[in-house]
Simulated assay, not measured.
Amino acid sequence: MRKIFILINLVLFVNLNSHGQIKTNEVSKPEFGKFLDSLKVKGAILIYDVKNNTYYSNDFAWAKMGIIPASTFKIPNSIIALETGIIQNDSVIFKWNGEKRNFKKWEQDLTFKKAFQVSCVPCYQEIARKVGVKRMKTYLKKLNYTGMVFDTLTIDNFWLQGKSKISQMQQIDFLERLYFSKLSISKRTENIMKNIMLIEKTKSYTLNGKTGWGMRNDVDNGWFLGYLETNNSVYFFATNVEMKDATMEVFPAIRLNSTKEAFKKLN
C-alpha cells in the first residue's frame, strides 16, 4: 500500500510544473503553417485539446507573443458591461445617430448581441467610456485579463492601438476560464456571453468565437478565437495571422477558413 502511495505521488510530481499546475503538452503541427503559406499569410494557429491536455500549433513562439487584441477585446468588454449593469441584456439597443461609419452594417440601430456579432466599434467605444478607467482596470484585474495599457485619453481605443498586448496562449486561457465557469462573474453574464458568441451550430459540433482586425508593425493583423464543442469534447483555439501577399478581399475569411482547416487536419 505504501509503495502505491509513493508511486502515485511520484507521478503527480513528474506531471506538475513549478507553479503546481499539471503540465500541458505542446505538439508541433507544421501542416498548419503550410496551409497558411498557401493562403499567402503568416502567423500561427493554436488549438488546445482539453481532454488530452495538449496544445497544437505550427509556431509556438508566435502563439506566445503579445499582440494588440483588436475586437477580440469585445469579449471582456461585454462581460464588464453586463457585470456593471451598463448593459442589461443582449436585447439592449444601441441607437445609430445617423453619422457615417466605417461599415454599412454599423449604420443602423443594433441590439447588444448584433453589435457584438458585427463587431461595432463605435458601440463598444461607448461602453468603454461609460465603464471608465477606474472600473475597467478593476474588472480586468478581477478577470485576470492582463496586458492592457490605457488612461483617460485612450479608454475608448486602447484595444485597437497603443501598447496593449495579449498572446494566443493567454486568449485561450481566458476563454477556458469563461467556458468552465472559472471567472468571478454571474452565471447570467456567462450564459449571455456564450449566446452572443455563437457562430455555427450543427448536429456534430457547435462553434463559438470572435474575430478581430488590427495593425501590428503597420501590417494588417487578424484574430479568430473561440471554442469548438463536439459530442464528447471541447477544443479552444486562437488563430493570429498577418498579411503577406493575400489581398484585402480575402483576408477576413482566411481567419475562419484556416482555423477550420486546422481542425480537419486534427481529424
Score class of each variant (00 low, 15 high):
53 N>G: 09
68 I>L: 01
76 P>D: 06
251 F>Y: 15
103 F>K: 07
48 Y>C: 14
8 I>A: 05
188 R>H: 08
11 V>L: 08
116 F>L: 06
50 V>M: 03
84 T>N: 13
231 N>A: 05
168 Q>N: 05
183 L>W: 13
106 W>K: 02
263 F>K: 04
181 S>T: 04
73 F>C: 11
83 E>P: 05
263 F>H: 03
27 V>W: 08
76 P>T: 09
214 G>C: 15
241 V>Y: 11
41 V>F: 05
248 M>T: 15
33 G>K: 02
69 P>D: 03
208 N>M: 02
154 T>C: 09
5 F>L: 12
129 R>E: 03
154 T>D: 11
3 K>N: 03
230 T>H: 08
216 R>I: 11
158 F>M: 01
144 N>P: 07
219 V>R: 10
10 L>C: 12
174 F>V: 01
171 Q>E: 02
74 K>P: 01
106 W>Q: 07
251 F>V: 10
14 V>C: 06
62 W>N: 13
52 N>F: 05
253 A>Q: 15
179 Y>W: 06
114 K>E: 13
61 A>M: 15
267 N>A: 07
232 N>L: 08
225 L>G: 10
143 L>M: 01
103 F>T: 07
242 E>I: 09
142 K>H: 06
134 K>P: 08
244 K>C: 14
186 S>I: 08
49 D>I: 08
153 L>C: 15
152 T>R: 14
258 S>W: 01
123 C>F: 04
86 I>Q: 05
99 E>T: 09
261 E>F: 07
169 M>P: 12
156 D>Y: 11
38 S>K: 14
77 N>F: 00
